[in-house]
C-alpha cells in the first residue's frame, strides 16, 4: 500500500500527472476472487452438506470454514491496521502538497475497493441470505449463507474500512489534523453491522421460527446501513479541502502542475 514516491521534495523537476491504479485494481481482483470462490463453494457444498447442522459432514464442510474465518480475519485486521500505524508518517507537517495530492487520490481510489467489498455484504450476499433461509429449515446460527455473509463479507469490509481510516489519519494531513465525523461514520457504521448479528441471532433463537426478511429484528442492519449516506458528507469535506486548499497549491492558472 505505498505510493510511488518519485516526486522528491526540493527537486526542480515536476513529475507529470499520473495516478497509480494498480493497488485499486489488485484490490478489486482480490475481492472478486474471494467472493466468487465463496459463491462457488456455496453452490458446491450447500445443498449436499449444508442442510443439517447435526450432520458430521456439516462440521467438515462448513464449520471448518467458519473457524478458519474466525482465525484468519482478526490476524489480517491487526496486520493491516498495525502495519499502517507502525509505518506512519511521523513528519506529516512536512509533506509536500503534490505528494499529499498523490496520496489523497490513491486513498480515494482505495475507497473503490472498500465500496466494492461493501457491495458484497450489503447487496450480493445479503439478499442471497433471503433466498437460502426462505428455502430451507434454519437449524443453526451458522448456515451456509451466514458463514459467508456475516463472517466473511462483513469482516472483509471492516478490515478494509479500518485500514483506510488508519491510512487517512497517518498519511493524509487533512484527516490527521482533525478526525472527520463522516469518515468515522462511513467506517464505524458498517462495522456496527457485525455486532448487530448478535441481536439478530438472539431474536432468531428465542422469537422467530419463520423467515421473512422485513421483520423488525433485521432493522438494526438497516440503521447502520444508513451510515453510508455519510459518504455524501465525506465527499463534501474532501471537495471543500481539495478545491480551496490542496489543488490551488499545486496548480497554476493555466492548469499546469507547479510542484
Amino acid at each position: 500500500m505505498s505510493v510511488v514516491q518519485n516526486d522528491v521534495v526540493k527537486s526542480e523537476k515536476i513529475e507529470p500527472w499520473k495516478i497509480n491504479f494498480k493497488p485499486m485494481i489488485l484490490g478489486l481482483l482480490a475481492i472478486t476472487a474471494i467472493m466468487l470462490t465463496a459463491r462457488w463453494y456455496q453452490q458446491w457444498a450447500a445443498w449436499d452438506y449444508g442442510l443439517d447442522a447435526s450432520d458430521p459432514l456439516f462440521d467438515v464442510y462448513w464449520m471448518k470454514v467458519f473457524w478458519a474465518q474466525l482465525i484468519i480475519e482478526p490476524i489480517l485486521f491487526f496486520v493491516f491496521v498495525g502495519y499502517l500505524w507502525l509505518t506512519r508518517d511521523t513528519h506529516l507537517n512536512q509533506l509536500s502538497k503534490r505528494e499529499e495530492l498523490n496520496k489523497m487520490m490513491f486513498w480515494i481510489s482505495m475507497l473503490v475497493v472498500y465500496a466494492f467489498s461493501f457491495y458484497f455484504a450489503g447487496s450480493f450476499y445479503a439478499e442471497q441470505d433471503a433466498s437460502w433461509h426462505q428455502t430451507v429449515v434454519r437449524d443453526t446460527s451458522f448456515t451456509p449463507s451466514h458463514i459467508f455473509l456475516f463472517y466473511m463479507c462483513m469482516p472483509v469490509f471492516i478490515i478494509i474500512g479500518f485500514s483506510l481510516f488508519f491510512y487517512a489519519i497517518t498519511r493524509l494531513p487533512f484527516f490527521a489534523e482533525k478526525i472527520s465525523v463522516p469518515l468515522l461514520l462511513v467506517v464505524c457504521g458498517p462495522f456496527m453491522l457485525l455486532p448487530t448479528v448478535g441481536y439478530n441471532e438472539w431474536g432468531h433463537a428465542f422469537w422467530l421460527m419463520e423467515e421473512y426478511f422485513t421483520v423488525p429484528l433485521h432493522w438494526g442492519f438497516v440503521f447502520f446501513g444508513w451510515s453510508i449516506i455519510a459518504l455524501g458528507g465525506l465527499l463534501v469535506q474532501i471537495l471543500g479541502y481539495m478545491s480551496s486548499d490542496l489543488l490551488p497549491k499545486v496548480l497554476n492558472e493555466k492548469g499546469e502542475l507547479t510542484s
Binding site: I108, F116, F118, Y119, F120, A121, S123, H218, W226, L231
Partner: peptide
C-alpha cells in the same frame, strides 16, 4: 465509489424493509 456504495446501502435498506 458511489455506484458500489449506493448499491450496497440502498439495497440492504430496501431488502430489509
Amino acid at each position: 465509489v458511489l455506484l458500489f456504495a449506493v448499491t450496497a446501502a440502498f439495497h440492504i435498506h430496501f431488502m430489509l424493509t
